[in-house]
Design a protein around this nucleic acid. Sequence first.
DNA 1: CGTTGTGAAATCCTTCACAGCA
DNA 2: TGCTGTGAAGGATTTCACAACG
Lengths: 252, 252
Amino acid sequence: MATGRTHRPATRSRGIPEATVARLPLYLRALTALSERSVPTVSSEELAAAAGVNSAKLRKDFSYLGSYGTRGVGYDVEYLVYQISRELGLTQDWPVVIVGIGNLGAALANYGGFASRGFRVAALIDADPEMTGKQVAGITVQHSDDMEKIISENGVSIGVITTPPGVAQQVCERLVAAGVTSILNFAPTVLSVPDGVDVRKVDLSIELQILAFHEQRKAGEEAEAQAGAVVAAHQESDGKGPDGDVPAVMPA
Amino acid sequence: MATGRTHRPATRSRGIPEATVARLPLYLRALTALSERSVPTVSSEELAAAAGVNSAKLRKDFSYLGSYGTRGVGYDVEYLVYQISRELGLTQDWPVVIVGIGNLGAALANYGGFASRGFRVAALIDADPEMTGKQVAGITVQHSDDMEKIISENGVSIGVITTPPGVAQQVCERLVAAGVTSILNFAPTVLSVPDGVDVRKVDLSIELQILAFHEQRKAGEEAEAQAGAVVAAHQESDGKGPDGDVPAVMPA
DNA sequence: CGTTGTGAAATCCTTCACAGCA
DNA sequence: TGCTGTGAAGGATTTCACAACG
């Protein structure tokens, strides 16, 4: 499993914390909405509210990028949009391939969020000869035999896997061998990749199971809840659950 | 924002760390695969490899559940499957509604992973009268006018939102008002919910943006990379969290 | 003034390393 | 002997609280 040794190069690395990186897209979206409403400046408090985080965290996050605010005033919306976009690498175009054009792959291909900022669906790939040549979201599906050629000709470095779990690992290996270094995995499988390759995963059933855990706990508490028991709330706006646990009044 | 203050009751709380909870489904999946191959026992090292984590973390995680292993031997697969399932609340059935039957909603309805483990699609709901009565994944789509009735009659406590972002918040509010206390949000929006309601988000474009960030950095490092520089690998198996963003996609 | 930027404290999570048990 | 379970150390992240500054 790709250990994720994060050797920091000796050179003064930018070192933006991973947790911060994961929130930058949230800020960017909130800022883009403000920009469209022609709001010129915004305070950390307001922006934090729009992004669903608290303002101290937001200011700390921005402090890793630089000093882009004005004391007593707030942040210039347009300027911040630009700075965050640049930091995230969205000022350039990222061609993406989607491998596995079933229900989910097709849904993603049709998803507008792709093209909107920096990402472009360069190709749709499927192993089923029946699919080859079909149009999905205005793009012609190509056969997986040509995967290597497609990737190198389009300069693709980001791949999305929406195949059945059984073939996800081999698809992953072919993608990596062909030059892909970032993978977004929708298949419910743990992918092994060599160092230098990033994998992020999206897994419906894991998310549901996490919800079920908390749901079960709420039910238990409710039953035990006598006067004075405090029911906790979970707003996990951002990645983790901030407030973490739930009381879970331990009976005997 | 809904701050979720977590009052800790005076009693010793069960307190399984959120990070651990997020990994339990991974362990469960690996264990289920072993179980299907009739493997009787497994060591922390083997199981950790299958789940994509390191063994110390796995043992620490399990230590929060109890002492379910045998020193010198390992863990009994069947027993662990049961214990984790119970901990996650998967020994009971969770009826789920999906709201918004577009491409993505339909893909999720067809997704096998739902039924497999404790979750059952109790209803599909859409606001478009054209959709009402249509069959998707063998289930008849119902109109959103009946949302409250559907939820209460089926005892639904988990809702999945796959609507366009513009209506996600109001759908969320109706779900909550009708009794839903856990929401899985696929719409690129920050949802506000009252205390006591859990929200988890799955957002394609956020994940892509995080990948783009690292991708950009790799490109930069590569350019600077002289002999001896080590390129970092990121295997972020599991999740932090889904977040939500799309740069202002004006949905049609 | 009002708001940012940030050291310092507090909290949460991961990793180490080894005692203890089957 | 081999592997679990876990204190303790080490990191990472969040929160606090306030000095600095436009």
